[in-house]
Design a protein around this nucleic acid. Structure first.
Lengths: 212, 212
DNA sequence: GCATAATCGATAAATTTTTATCGATTATTA
DNA sequence: TAATAATCGATAAAAATTTATCGATTATGC
């Protein structure tokens, strides 16, 4: 807690997406209220922890005997996470993964427009799922005109650093990197690593722990 | 620290993949030694923290004046994370994302064989990147014969819980879920959520924090 | 209308994780 | 060969996070 602007811990923030996913699921089933104990049980957390987390982001307190109103809670968490602010994003690398992400519609629910993909290979240029794939040369122009703030990097490992440099040169400050490579970026640029293999390996490790 | 078997904190474990990625990158450039200070600088951590993490997994101490020997460190971390144990995995849902993952070769580096995909739609059956796509009905048979321990779930949101139930019924104990849905699973089954939209949204939030 | 049971929110304790400090070790270099 | 600078590992302090406890609130059922 440095100056009052961020009184919410990182650990709490990291649990918010799980709450949101859970609450939306319950809302979809027609449930209107949910207790901290119920959330904790389904998500494998402690009820006290859940209450603490929710107290930090919810605008209205929970009702004794009922719990929290799901609809309000979803609104509050979305507002807290900033899903109400729209962001434009692009994909760099139109291989299998890049094209799959380009076709994925789920981002719109989170305030993110993925507007196009770019690829160094002319063979990949065209369109996927109604969205355009441009040659890499057009990145600076299109990115600047559309105020792109985020890039999703889905190029092969060997091309990652070079592509990263191009992204940075355009002024993009946030990169979601799917290439299993450590990227060197200047100060002020945020990289988030999304290594599918690591996720899977971690999962194996977790579930294997019991068996040894 | 309950009984001496797990004296390594979760936080430390969660940083290991980043170390590994970084070290492999440096090794690829021909570097042989690296200091805790250098790692910390590039990864945005504290040198003391890096030393503490590495002390817990490395078999040999670092050399004063040189740092750690990268080759040994990579071996130690891989051993620690269990990448030496082989695991068979399958993909459930052969849409765009499922096919992209099926074609991805990177898993082999982490001790994971993705042997096949399954899909409820007959139209999807066939092969991708040399790997077979089977109809969903064959999951129990093939999974049991190959000792499948992990499933990667890439079906649409609406089909996720049903597919999850089928996976669980087969006896698979670990699921990497790409559908943006909370899954209800029995005790003993581990689910890891890999919500691309959330990752991206979180990234936007991080980089947006400065600008408000 | 009143006792009851379920739930919340706040405060306090315990645990975990991070950061700081300092002596010990080892290659470099004069 | 001896002084120096860089780095480590261990111990201690600080900060963050999780867990426990308890009185307050509110719908339910008699």
């Amino acid at each position: 807690m440095k100056n009052g602007e961020t009184a919410v811990s990182k650990a709490t923030v990291s649990r918010m997406p799980a709450y949101l996913r859970y609450l939306k699921g319950e809302a979809g089933k027609g449930v209107e209220y949910v207790s901290s104990a119920a959330i904790a049980k389904d998500l494998g957390l402690s009820a006290v922890g859940v209450r603490k987390d929710l107290a930090l982001v919810s605008s209205r307190p929970g009702k004794p005997r009922f719990g929290f109103e799901i609809r309000l809670l979803i609104e509050d968490i979305e507002k807290f996470l900033g899903y109400h602010r729209w962001t434009n994003a692009v994909i760099i690398g139109a291989g299998g993964l890049g094209r799959a992400i380009l076709a994925y519609e789920g981002f719109e629910n989170y305030g993110i427009h993925v507007i196009a993909a770019f690829d160094a290979s002319p063979a990949k240029v065209g369109a996927v799922g109604g969205k355009p794939v441009y040659p890499m040369e057009q990145l600076p122009d299109i990115a600047r005109r559309n105020g792109i703030r985020v890039a999703i990097l889905t190029v092969p490992r060997a091309a990652a650093q070079e592509a990263c440099d191009e992204i940075v040169a355009v002024g993009i400050k946030a990169i979601l990197n799917f290439a299993p490579v450590h990227l060197h970026v200047p100060e002020g640029v945020t990289v988030r690593y999304e290594d599918l293999a690591v996720s899977l390996a971690a999962l194996c490790g977790e579930s294997a722990g019991d068996q040894i």
